[in-house]
Write a protein that binds this DNA or RNA. Structure first.
Length: 832
RNA sequence: GCGGCGGUGGUGGAACGGUAGACACGGCGGCCUCAAAAGCCGCUGUCCUUCGGGACGUGUGGGUUCGAAUCCCACCCGCCGUACCA
């Protein structure tokens, strides 16, 4: 036994096999069976299975597992499941390149992920495992699609959509980054196509408002608010009468500043606006407008969108009438106005908008201030003036509204417009409906058929799932590869029985992952996606852990799903994820993002082989605060390995002189070294517990266990009972982070299974010593430290401090003005 | 521009308004060994020192306080997100 070394390769498989054999982490849905404790649903974002897991996964699941273990041992019934986000483009693109079918490659990756989750010792309830590409799962994805369709939340329409020419598919707005496909980086094009959408805009208000009630990081909430982009303002109608006086045309604009309406001196339309050509047909402006619009439309979205680009545009030779003052203002077409936001037309108020100011300056248009601070005269119109708003702003140059407070004036102008049917208060959103069709193979089929007689017909629920057929050729050709599967495409109409064709587009994979956390609750239910009572017992997810990269897409879509399903009376919560924790990235040792091309990445498999899963898990949590990015360090892992080995040696030493089979309770009495150890153990319990409850300060929790272990080494003479207590406590506390070693040492010392033991509680009497080190300050600077009895009265502490030699030299010959006493801590003597 | 978050030793990072730098890495020294590995034990913010100690020190400048890394004001720098969004 003696001189053996810490060997994770024998310890770790032993416990993994036991947990596997006994299904240790399985929980029952029936509360009668499961026990009546409070539930806790701990969930890490499900992985997209590609190759093997990387260190980011290791950190993600190590984090979630620590929380799951802690909750279990503090009286919670914990749901901690696992699944795979199995559909998706990379597997399909890989298939095109290598010929390996997406299903084959995906299943292989899933097997690898599953293997590593076992090998890492993550405490997963495997009875609930799922993968989104299995018919048993996507059958219900289709079912939810049909429910959304029934309710009018899934619809088909022709629209200008973002098209990736490389991936040969349309993309959601959210998947276009700086005008490029987020997957492959190719510049996207606009195409006029008929596509499926989810009406997420119906939920825009609730998606913004309900952010206030959930415990999410501020930056994630801000990103969602930003993305949804709610702005309050008004719609105002400007009438164009000089195109055809007999048939005036009304153009509505959206503005957030109806208070500045009297300052409108021109009117601008987006190049894409459908009326632009009509307005100039047959006039001298026709040629320049055509030229300008064509140039604008072909210009790359990126260069056109640059905010610092000089303003360009051409006149349309028409005017519109400002409804508030009857003034005719000239119309322009300019590319700084976007068709996809608002109405595709804006009023130009150069005195109060930077962009309008730039345009007016370039085209020598009048600039008329209409809002000014009450105190001063008309404001000095400079480029800096636009953001400077003051509380006392008043309207000027605004006819009957002049002199009104800007806020009141705004409301009065809107009301005035409303009465004349020329405008009304309005809220505008940046959020667009979610485009979910993809012209690709490896996704969930959309359960719709097209019949010549009946038109668009949903597949009846009883016919679900619409299975994804096997195909040979995955090459996208502008339409889904499914279109070539003739046997599958041709079907009969569920309504009339006549010939019909299936929808060949598949769904965006974000649809699959928008509801998987619901399915985990009742994963083996064949009759329904879930039983409502079961769902009620588990939802919402209490703690959701994942990367910040999902701040908008996945997290917003999931929130939309839950709200829509709640409105259909299918579930009982309004938000899917109560607390969200966004973990930081693990960077390469050079501080850069890990990437195979940079050669700075670390494979978890290698680390686990060299140091064991426990060391790998502890290290990624010890490296720093979990929400922060941190650079990988090889010597850092070695340090954590050394710590675990030190703990193991302590346990191994006690195997010989301990009393296995009995709990290592706190000894009833101790003194000297033993007392020091018992106190340190209690201190560690207190520290680790606090660090894990609420905030997830796992780095300092692990550091506390390190301190405890160091303390045991420093007191080899302490009696066995105290050492057993200290070592068993260390094993118990490290268990959420290093479950194998924790279980092993706890078993060696006590003969018991640590995960069935309640989380230790600190003995309050052991958290305070008889004496403490009194800090003696003079004018706030530490001048001495003396030993003082705990709980001593203020006068005694003051006396002790004044007597301290270090203090004496600094107060000699000075007048004592004041003495501050902080009991059991310090005394500060203020002298002059 | 706007929004969010940061700035502490050689490094990662600790610090309810109360001993700045826990813990770890790295470095230095010692023990063990024929030697090494492993392990164990010390020391390790900077400068000065008569070796008792002293001065300075948490991006910069002010302020509040007996006492500020922490709170307030102004500024500088960095990261992340977002942006002709009317």
């Amino acid at each position: 036994m003696a001189q053996q070394r810490y060997d994770p390769t024998t310890i770790e498989p032993k416990w993994q096999q036991l947990w596997e054999r006994e299904s240790t982490w399985q929980v029952d849905n029936d509360p009668a069976v499961a026990g009546a404790e409070a539930k806790s649903y701990v969930l890490e974002m499900l992985p997209y299975p590609s190759g093997e897991p990387h260190v980011g996964h290791l950190k993600n699941y190590a984090l979630g597992d620590a929380i799951a273990h802690f909750r279990r041992r503090t009286g919670h019934r914990v749901l901690h499941p696992m699944g795979y986000d199995a559909f998706g483009l990379p597997a399909e693109n890989n298939a095109i390149k290598t010929g390996v079918a997406p299903r084959v490659a995906t299943d292989k990756s899933i097997a690898a992920y599953r293997h590593w989750f076992h090998r890492w010792g993550i405490s997963i309830d495997w009875s609930r495992e799922l993968a989104t590409h299995e018919p048993a799962y996507y059958r219900w994805t289709q079912w939810i699609f049909l429910k959304l369709y029934e309710r009018g939340l899934a619809y088909r329409k022709e629209a200008a959509v973002k098209w990736c020419p490389f991936d040969q598919t349309v993309l959601a707005n959210e998947q276009v980054i700086d005008g490029r496909c987020e997957r492959c980086g190719h510049e996207v094009e606009l195409r006029q196509l008929e596509q499926w959408f989810f009406r997420i805009t119906d939920y825009a208000d609730r998606l913004v408002d309900d952010l206030d009630g959930i415990d999410w990081p501020e930056n994630v909430k801000a990103m969602q608010r930003n993305w949804i982009g709610r702005s309050e303002g008004a719609e105002v109608t400007f009438r164009c009468e000089d195109w055809d006086p007999a048939h005036p045309i009304d153009y509505t604009v959206f503005t957030t500043r109806p208070d500045t309406l009297f300052g409108a001196t021109f009117f601008v339309m987006a190049p894409e606006h459908p009326d632009v050509f009509k307005l100039v047909a047959g006039t001298e402006h026709e040629a320049p407008v055509h030229e300008y619009v064509n140039r604008a439309l072909t210009e790359a979205t990126e260069t056109r969108g640059a905010a610092d680009k000089p303003k360009t545009g051409v006149p349309l030779g028409r005017t519109v009438t400002n409804p508030v003052n009857g003034e005719a203002i000239p119309m322009y077409v300019a590319d700084y106005v976007l068709m996809e936001y608002g109405t595709g037309a804006v009023m130009g108020v150069p005195a109060h908008d930077q962009r309008d100011y730039d345009f007016a300056t370039a085209f020598h248009l009048p600039i008329r201030p209409v809002v000014a601070p009450a105190a001063g005269d008309a404001p000095d119109i400079t480029q800096q003036a636009f953001t400077a708003h003051t509380d006392d702003e008043r309207l000027i140059n605004s006819d009957g509204f002049t002199g009104m407070d800007a806020v009141a004036g705004r409301d009065a102008i809107v009301a005035w417009l409303d009465r004349r049917d020329a405008g009304h208060a309005s809220t505008n959103f940046r959020l667009r409906d979610w485009l979910i069709s993809r012209q690709r193979y490896w996704g969930c089929p959309i359960p719709i058929v097209y019949c010549d007689g009946c038109g668009l017909v949903p597949v009846p629920e009883s016919d679900l799932p619409v299975r994804l057929p096997e195909v040979e050729d995955y090459q996208p050709r502008g339409k889904s590869p499914l279109a070539a599967a003739e046997n599958w495409v041709n079907t009969t109409c569920p309504a009339c029985g006549g010939p019909a064709r299936r929808e060949t587009d598949t769904m965006d994979t974000f649809v699959d992952s928008s509801w998987y956390y619901l399915r985990y609750c009742d994963a083996r239910n064949d009759a329904a996606p879930w039983d409502r009572e079961v769902l009620k017992a588990w939802t919402p997810v209490d703690t959701y852990i994942g990367g910040i990269e999902h701040a908008i897409l996945h997290l917003m879509y999931s929130r939309f799903f839950v709200k829509a399903l709640a409105d259909m009376d299918l579930l009982d919560v309004q938000e899917p994820f109560g607390t969200l924790f966004t973990q930081g990235m693990i960077l390469g040792a050079d501080g850069n993002k890990m990437s195979s091309s940079k050669g700075n990445s670390v494979a978890p498999s290698e680390i686990v082989e060299r140091f064991g899963a426990d060391a790998a898990r502890c290290y990624v949590l010890f490296i720093g605060p979990p929400e922060q990015d941190a650079a990988w360090s090889d010597t850092g892992v070695e340090g954590v390995y050394r710590f675990l080995a030190r703990l193991w040696r302590l346990g191994d030493g006690l195997a010989e002189d301990g009393t296995p089979g009995r709990p290592a309770d706190q000894p009833p009495t101790s003194d000297g070294d033993a007392l020091t150890l018992v106190r340190k153990a209690n201190w560690a319990i207190e520290k680790v517990t606090n660090d894990m409850r609420g905030r997830f300060a796992f780095n300092t929790a692990i550091a506390a266990v390190m301190e405890l272990v160091n303390e045991v080494y420093r007191h080899p003479e302490a009696d066995v009972a105290a050492r057993r207590f200290a070592v068993a406590t260390a094993a118990s506390l490290i268990f959420p982070f290093a479950p194998h070693l924790g279980a092993e040492i706890y078993e060696i010392v006590t003969g018991r299974r640590v995960w069935t033991e309640p989380w230790p509680e600190a003995d309050p009497r052991m958290l305070v010593a008889d004496t403490f080190e009194l800090v003696c300050q003079v004018n706030g600077r530490v001048r001495d430290r003396v030993t003082a009895p705990t709980g001593a009265p203020r006068e005694e502490l003051e006396k002790l401090c004044l007597a301290a030699s270090g203090v004496q030299t600094h107060i000699e010959g000075k007048e004592i003005v004041k003495v501050i006493v902080v009991p059991d801590k310090l005394v500060n003597i203020v002298v002059k």
